[in-house]
Amino acid sequence: MDSIEAMYQENILDHYKNPRNAGKIDKASVHHHEYNPLCGDEIEMFLVIKDKKVADVKFHGRGCAISQASASMLTEEIKGKSIEDLKKLTKENILELLGISLSPVRLKCALLSLDTLKNSILIFEKYIKK
């Protein structure tokens, strides 16, 4: 990271301060909570899945700018996508969304939302889907 302004660029701060898809969904198909004990970042994600696609998604959480902005961006990205598409998401996709490179410590913050999403899908497929 060459400068701190690059890390905390406009769009990241914008997503942090005005998170998209913030909130909860009462009748979600699956919801799941992940927690990073090292820094206390938290994300809870709610997914409505219809015809194997994400019909709606919301999240709520607390933590650093990177963890919350990445969750906000990710929820925007996945709306309408199929479950199979979601399974293919990688760390690189998240970094692309954020548009920055990160140190290993901060990478954990950025990837918390992806972990939450992947585990939500695992739970959905294993326990909920009939």
Binding site: P37, C39, R106
Partner: peptide
């Protein structure tokens, strides 16, 4: 409301090394 991680990161860019987290005291 700024998370301690973000504080530490900006300080680091100014050469200031501090700690952010639970300091082994959860």
């Amino acid at each position: 409301n700024i998370h301690a991680h973000d504080v530490a990161q900006v300080l680091d860019s100014e050469g200031v090394a501090i700690r952010a987290g639970h300091h082994c005291c959860m």
